[in-house]
Write a protein that binds this DNA or RNA. Structure first.
Lengths: 129, 129, 129, 129
DNA sequence: GTGGTCTAGACCACG
DNA sequence: GTGGTCTAGACCACC
């Protein structure tokens, strides 16, 4: 359901938030859909419940989630439809800009960088060079 | 000489280390070349000298830099030649893998993602969509 | 818990690292065991917290310690058992080689040097000649 | 004539001073004997002349050396005879005390430590375990 | 001139 | 509570 990397430098709650945001934008999660409870998700990911709670609360502040007393949280109404294609593309920009900056510093030919990216878009992670 | 982003979540000393590593790999800095002194670089980047010193020391531990008592640090011998093209490309992989994962979660068409990356490779940062 | 000599030429953080390394090798500290917190140890040794932190961080880089976000650091797994006897003896060699070199330069008879060493092995520090 | 290890943590001028002191104590260098000039020794050891000069000056302050205008420095009179055996042994103590402390922290059996020391006293450096 | 170490103390991020 | 980062500034050692 969620892919958490405990060893990463990126904080866990942020990994959660980012994934949830992107999946809502992509329409994988739709308005009204119930989220797993804090405790369940904490157990499943082997993470402290407070960490889950922090992610949920921040997303509630953002308006992406809605809290209903005594009931599981849900994706907020108003997020019924996935984000427009150009907004989604825009939210991909920072990661790509960073990769581009690294490629430039490494003096990697444009064609090579593009080819590697294309391969990674096809094959999730394992693709050898 | 170095591009530091004070506001970034990535610590300054780490930004320095990454840039230096990449530029040595690209052959922009060659073995035996003297680095700017801790104090000079600190002044230039408007950063505390200890921050620079930390980056230098860690790179020395890694074997990328060499300390010579009383003299400026230098790029270590054994890093005379830039890294092989495939090693450089390999070190670009993590950043691209991350972008690819995000693109997949956002359900962005491959062609769009590739086009954006291509544009960012050409135009450092500003290119509008 | 740790013996720090503030007056020594050897930096405090390095004294800490050396002691911890040796005690893990000797099996006095075992894998998974929690280290005293940076702040506690700093108070106890009357030293600045950053000094402790530096020692801990470098040992983490070495792989001897493991960081767990929000929790005290622990001896890394993979250091469950104390080092083999011959490795421990090997790590004693530099100090003894140095002493031997000095003895030779001082033209001290072998028997005398050995007797002094034996006495120091028994009586930690105070034994008069 | 002198063994200098540029890579060591111990400063060069101190390595020089220690060696000279020990050799005078052992009677290898006797009162009135001329020392190599600062420049010659600097060339020979590939070291900055100021480093040699610093060692000589400090030893002059100690009274071990004597400066004579326009002439090479010499071992001071009053150091005609080597130091008494017990003084020489005493000056070996710090190095041995340190080794003993390490042996204790490493939990190395006394007999093993002694055997290693004995071997190192015989075979300068190379002796395998 | 060079880098190294340490302190005092602030602020942040994570759990 | 945990550790991490940074600043301001002192002092040292080496060359």
């Amino acid at each position: 359901m969620f892919q958490i990397n405990t060893g990463s430098a990126e904080p866990i709650y942020r990994q959660l938030m980012d994934q949830l945001r992107r999946r809502v934008a992509a329409g994988q999660w739709v308005a009204g859909q119930e989220l797993p409870s804090v405790r369940d998700l904490a157990l499943q990911l082997a993470v402290h419940p407070m960490t889950i709670s922090k992610a949920y609360s921040l997303l509630e502040l953002e308006g992406l989630l809605e809290r209903r007393r005594g009931l599981p949280m849900v994706i907020a109404a108003g997020h019924a439809r996935p984000a427009a294609a150009r907004d989604r593309l825009e939210s991909l920009r920072p990661a790509l800009a960073r990769a581009a900056a690294e490629a430039r510093e490494l003096d990697i030919p444009k064609a090579q960088a593009l080819r590697l990216f294309e391969r990674l878009l096809d094959a999730p992670d394992t693709g050898a060079l």
